[in-house]
Amino acid sequence: MTVTRLRLASVMPLLVLAGLCVAISIAEPRFLSIDNLIRIAAASAAPLVLALGATFVILMGSIDLSVEGSMAFASAILAACVANANGAGLDLGLAALPLVIAAAALFGALIGVIHTYLRVPSFMASLGMGFVGLGIATIMLGGERVGIVDESIRALALTRILNLPISIYVATFMLALAWVIQNHTRIGRRMLALGGAEQLVVASGVNVRHVRILVFAIAGAFFGVGAVLASARLGASSALVGSGQLFTAISAVVVGGTALTGGSGGVLATLLGVLIVMVLNNGMVILGLPTFVQQGVLGIMIIIAVLLNQPIRGLAVAK
């Protein structure tokens, strides 16, 4: 039982996605081929997992800019825990995954602690910790790309079940998990309430700090999973494993319809947002648009998405 409202703003992303697919496939029918759809799905897997993590933080009205650093940190831990090219890994195989995710969650929790207890604005706390994560990864990896030799980790990117890469299954599972967290757990509901009206939640006797820290930890865990997927795809652990992902994740969340002010939107909106961004990326290459046009289209898309999500406020100037 989810709480949803069918309003223009919430069906808009769905219309945009459908419109994009129709428009691109008219121009180039091969866009709708099964193989291409699978490619889009595979390309969306890691960004979706990252964007889900970011969605939680944005829903409660904060922001997490540590995506790239958290991923670098998690990726370095992963390299240390599995068989790798420099030969000093723990060789835990798949058992490394819970360790990596726990480490990433802890890293997220630390951002939450800095944000709440030291009263550092979330964008600064997460940005700073993002750099710390990059630094730790650089030290651990010696500034190198350390190849991941472990076959079970590599298999996450290369094996296919029913002709679909495993990463798609992982992303689908994370989506379901995120949906349950958002709609069926206390922490999920509280982060939504927090994004709606923080003062009132405080007045209701909820320990808001703990909520925030926990949400940052959950987001960190999602970034950890995203880092595993990205590292598996790259076949290596690197401090730069997440480069470029922050922009994709945040813009997907916004395009999907989750308000940056918090309180409205959610994981399904983010799924749509990720698909819109990835369909657009894929479609524009298929249509053969020059790169500078592609970047322009993506930028305009984000601005339009924010406009569509904003309640009309007359002549008020947005800050």
Binding site: R30, N36, R39, I40, A43, M278, N281, N282, V285, G288
Partner: peptide
């Protein structure tokens, strides 16, 4: 990676 994926389609 993503661009090459789209190229294979095209």
């Amino acid at each position: 990676t993503n661009i090459v994926g789209a190229w294979i389609t095209r």
